[in-house]
């Protein structure tokens, strides 16, 4: 779906001819050392940044060049590396703004989702007053309001305690079981190895390799990329 995408910032090539192909109903991992272009690739897919070269197709249609909000309505939702909830909206309102369904249906769905991550008691609390982990969950279920086909998660595990993390991982698996596709950037290797079926490795903006977690773990090149040469 991502075909030879290139993104440059000034003279720096942040992403260089990266191609990824995702199938529905699977969980993919995107790993690589800091600065290897993971978040930039996410930004290109979701339209926050425009790719300089290459194509991005989703369900057979090109989506590169669309605005972020249009891409969202194609069925691609994302979370951010640094949490981006709307702090002066309540947890419930954070979810409500996302859909255009009629109000009652949206509200019912939002309440369901908050219950799904056990935040129903905090529905009317301003999101800015929630703990980091709770904000992360709000951001996660906010993506699910419209039932997207593809969910991009940027470091979902960072800063989340064990209990909340397990809930989050369960939620991701549930999503997969319902036929959704998940692509996640993650530094916590335990999470990646335990969750993902295929892992893409980026290094210096280029795709180093891809494969099942077990194979990736023992790949010389990957170890080299992470620990230097």
């Amino acid at each position: 779906m991502v075909d030879r995408v290139v993104k440059r910032f000034g003279g720096v090539t942040a992403v260089n001819k990266v191609s990824l192909s995702l199938e529905a109903g699977r969980i993919y991992g995107l790993i690589g050392p800091k600065g290897s272009g993971k978040t930039t690739l996410f930004n290109c897919i979701t339209g926050v940044d425009q790719a300089d070269e290459g194509q991005i197709r989703f369900k057979g249609q090109r989506i590169d060049g669309l605005k972020p909000h249009q891409i969202f309505h194609q069925g691609i939702g994302r979370t951010f590396q640094v949490i981006r909830v709307f702090p002066e909206l309540t947890a419930l309102e954070n979810l409500l703004v996302v859909t255009t369904d009629d109000y009652a249906a949206a509200r019912a769905r939002a309440e369901d989702l908050l219950r799904f991550v056990k935040l129903e008691r905090l529905a009317n609390e301003y999101a800015g007053n929630l703990s980091y982990g709770q904000q992360k969950l709000v951001e996660f279920v906010r993506v699910l309001m419209t039932d997207p086909e593809l969910v991009l998660l940027d470091e979902p595990a960072a800063g989340v305690n064990r209990t909340l993390l397990n809930e989050l991982l369960d939620a991701v698996r549930t999503l997969r079981d319902r036929g959704k596709t998940v692509l996640l950037v993650e530094h916590d290797m335990k999470v990646v190895m335990g969750l993902c079926e295929t892992v893409f490795v980026l290094d210096h903006g280029e795709k180093l390799t891809e494969g099942p977690p077990g194979v990736i773990q023992t790949d010389e090149r990957v170890i080299e990329a992470y620990f230097g040469r």
Partner: peptide, 13 residues
């Protein structure tokens, strides 16, 4: 007002 980039990413025109 809160976060325009996130608003865009959440499908808001």
């Amino acid at each position: 007002r809160e976060d325009e980039v996130a608003a865009e990413a959440m499908g808001i025109d």
